[in-house]
């Protein structure tokens, strides 16, 4: 196994913010979490198990460090991650 893969498996600390439906379901508006998830998608599956989020990842958008990203974006220590449930402006 390469050095890069080994470091991928170590827990890294990320910050999460929750809004709307997810905030109510998680019963918090933010948390600092140590995770072994390698991507945003893996992190969402981890959170789904813990908080029973009913919405599938396919209905969510993802933002990291205040920009939209794809769900397969690799997680890095210190990232601020927001899962965005379906929106309703106007």
């Amino acid at each position: 196994m390469s050095v890069a893969n080994v470091s991928d498996c170590r827990p890294k600390t990320v910050r999460l913010r929750y809004f709307a439906l997810l905030r109510e379901q998680a019963k918090r508006d933010n948390e600092v979490r140590a995770t072994t998830a390698r991507t945003c998608a893996e992190l969402y599956f981890e959170l789904q198990k813990e908080y029973s989020f009913p919405l599938p990842l396919s209905q969510m958008k993802v933002a990291v460090n205040e920009e939209f990203v794809g769900p397969e974006r690799p997680l890095q220590a210190g990232d601020e991650v927001v899962f965005i449930p379906p929106v309703a402006g106007g």
Binding site: V87, A88, G90
Partner: peptide, 10 residues
Amino acid sequence: IKHRLPIWKK
């Protein structure tokens, strides 16, 4: 705005 703005309505 309706489709893209990260804002939620209750």
